[in-house]
Structure formats: structure tokens, C-alpha cells
Design a protein around this nucleic acid. Sequence first.
DNA 1: ACGAAATAGGTCAGTATCTGTCCTATTTCT
DNA 2: AGAAATAGGACAGATACTGACCTATTTCGT
Lengths: 241, 241
Amino acid sequence: MDRTDRTDALVSHLRANHFATMTELAEELGVSVRTVRRDIADLRLRGLDIEGERGRGGGVRFARLAPLPPLQLDESQVVGLWLSVQLARRATGLPFSEDSGAGLNKVLAALPEARRQKLRQLYGRIAVGAPASPRLRDSAGEMCPSLIDAFERCFSQETCLSFTYRDRFENMTQRRIEPHGILVQPPVWYILAIDVDKSAQRMFRMDRISNPRPFSRPFVPSRAVVHEMVEEIPGVSAPKL
Amino acid sequence: MDRTDRTDALVSHLRANHFATMTELAEELGVSVRTVRRDIADLRLRGLDIEGERGRGGGVRFARLAPLPPLQLDESQVVGLWLSVQLARRATGLPFSEDSGAGLNKVLAALPEARRQKLRQLYGRIAVGAPASPRLRDSAGEMCPSLIDAFERCFSQETCLSFTYRDRFENMTQRRIEPHGILVQPPVWYILAIDVDKSAQRMFRMDRISNPRPFSRPFVPSRAVVHEMVEEIPGVSAPKL
DNA sequence: ACGAAATAGGTCAGTATCTGTCCTATTTCT
DNA sequence: AGAAATAGGACAGATACTGACCTATTTCGT
């Protein structure tokens, strides 16, 4: 019986018998009391709520097997968490950033498979890059405040978006696009889209967009489009296909 | 990350992402491919139904999803999620970043009250600032790879840390400190500490620290210390008192 | 038909981890 | 007081884990 089996057995025994002394557990598991003590300390570190009663007649028990209320996260909340974690993990060397990935995976794992599948498709359309260069950052202007809402809706619901775009020569044009993906280079981001009038791939910087209006024409999002538009850009981790 | 954490993370990752190659898993978990192979073999022995698809384009996945384990996030995983979300929310205007805060709150709400309290104390000691200025970023050097582990442990367990510090005049000194807080200005971070030999508050930049060694002297973390050291710095949201 | 990319797993040396033994401190009941 | 518990520090020896290297096999795309 290796360590993993043993901690497994320890948890089962405590669940089944509700209360035990370390000495009893040690005999049950065939190891020394000191080892049981260490195993319990480990389980506590992992967040299991085991309470010890000191003194004569004492022992250990599960404090309260509180069935956690099921997580009711909606789609954009999970995508938000996902994006936050991806951004933090690009800055290697931050404390706790490795653990955030593991934490996110546990949250995702707790969702029903059907939602997980939908979510995988959503963040498969998001490309995360390094933070914007100082020059880019300085050139970034104010974003139209209604853009986020409009964009999030169209991106998730797979419908088209129209807006007025100001290109780098200050020309204003009307665009109607299918928002297939986004590229995030904080604090700047781009919509990776197909312009339905030109039938061509285009990138739109968020601060050059004004007067966004969703419209109800549906499209089929393509990760391939996202992948293709992004793969040449250095420092960007393209989503898997 | 020990073996147990790793197999945990492995299962979560597979549940969350549905499909992965051994190589991806190895990178995600920071171990060799051979070790991932062994972990997967172990999990199979334990009865988890993981199927492997051979050949080009192959990978591993759960054949039949094992019953959901209850959401068991450990402390540093929650702190990691929290920090990621705070950082993302500072970059206002990113899509989905508002929702990430709501999502995080739901995750926190699903934890037992006792842990929530401990966690509030932990992230009450973390100050989040704007990303580092280009000059600061360029001057930042490599961080000692063992620092993160040592620091995370001392920070959470409320014990002291000693290390060699190189100040901005390149003087090397031995320090013994109480790590009360951190200030994060990605990708740079500082330990906000009390130097126990000088009995004075000091900030230590993470890339100037070498040879970190935890030692078992406990201290009582003070949010006031963190607050005081950080309140003069522009662009930093100090934790509430 | 071939090569590239996967899973699968054997072997071995070095190291990191775990375990038991022996402590001390503290709490609680009799 | 004293006995019976939890809690956990220190240390040496045993154990297991890990990475490097290797081979076999399957599968896909060109």
C-alpha cells in the first residue's frame, strides 16, 4: 500500500467511522502514528476540513461534509476567468501564477461536460499575446464604452456586428463583420473577423471602433480563421486547432 | 508541486480540456514526458478509464468520465485565481474582464466560510499595481528559480525567510525578514517585509534576491504594514484595512 | 511507401521524498 | 497531578520517484 492508497483509505475510514484516534488509524493502516499525523496534516493543507479534538478522549473527524452548492457560472464568467489566468500565466515568475492554472482546471472540471464543450469552442477563438509594446500602448485611444457589451454578445452568440472603423490613415468606413476571434495584447485587443462585404479577413483594433451595433445574421465561427490570422505574429500563443 | 498535486492537476486538466498529448501535459505540469506516462499508467491502475489514441494526431482522454470529485481548491490555487483576476481587471476595457470578477466571487462563495476567512487574510496582504514601466521592466533581471516556492510557503505559513540581497548599488547583504505582503507590478514584484535584524520596513525586488531559505520562526502578519508601505505609491490599489 | 508524430513501456543511476524513532509542547478529562 | 490525546520538530536510513535514453508499435499525411 503506497502513500496514495493510504491517504485514500484514511479518508474512507474517517468518512465511514466518523471518529477515530490517530493510534487507531495507524493500526488500521499499518504505519506509525507519526506517519498518520503527517498524512492528516497533508490532507488539511489540501483543504479537507478535518478537526482534531485534543486531550483525553479526543480524536479526529471531518468537521462537516458540507456539500458545496453547485457552481452556477455563466459562460462569460468562465471565459473571463480563463482569460485572466492565461494573461497572468504569460508573466512567468509571478507568485501563485502556476497554481492559478491548476485552480482554473479544477473549476472547469466541476462543470457539466456539455458546458465544457461549448466553452472550449469559445476560448479556442481567443489568442493571447504578450502585453502591448510601449509605443502601441501610448497610441491606444479611448474605447467606445458600448463596444464591450456589443462585442461580447456577438462573439458568444455567433452573430454579426457592424460599426464605423477609423483606419490608421484616419479614413472612416462602415463595416459589417463576422467576429470569429480576438487577439488580446493587454491593454489593447483586436477583433479577428471576416468582413462580409469584402469577403476577406481583417483585424480591427478596439479603440478605432465606434457606434457598434449587433445585427442578427448568424455565422459559423472558424478556429482556422483565428489561427491563420495570428500564427505569423510573434509572441502570440495561437489556440490549438 | 509534488506527485499528489500533479496527478490531481493531471486529472483536472484532462477533465477540463478533454483531450491532450503527453507532451502538452508534461509542459503544463513541468515534468518530463516519461513521468506523465507513468502518472497516467498509475491512474489507469487505479481504475480511471483513460484511453490513448496512438499515432500521429493522437493523445489521451477520459473514455467515460469518472464521477465528479467535489471541488477541492487549495489555498494557493484560490489566491492564484484571485491575483489573476485582479491583474486582468486593472486593464480596463478588456472583453470579459468584468465577468471574471463575478465568476471569481461565485467560486469563493462555494468555499466553506472558515477557508474564506483565511483567504481574505491572505489576499488582504497583496497589493496590485499597474504593469511595470518600460524602464523598470527592462532593468528587471532573472529571478532565482527557487524563490517562488520558498516565498509562497513563507508567505502563507507566516514564517520568516532569509536570503542574500543585491541592492541598487550592487552591495550584497544577508537578510532575515518577515514577509508581510507583496506588491505586484507585472512582470515585477516586491516582497513587503520587516527586516528582523534592523527592525525596519523594507521592500525587496524579486530579481535581486538569491539563495532564499525559509526558516521556521513564525510572525504575525500585519495588513497595516502592507498598507503603509504601499499607500504612497501611485497607481497601486492598497488592500483595504 | 515512407517519415513524422504519437502512445507504450523497459532500464538505470542519482536524488529527493517519505518513514520510523525519539523528542517536546499543549490540551483535556479523571 | 497524571494519563491520554493532538500537534509537530529533528534526524538517519530506506524507499520511491524522476529524467535520460532506448525500443516497439500505431497512425496519418504527403
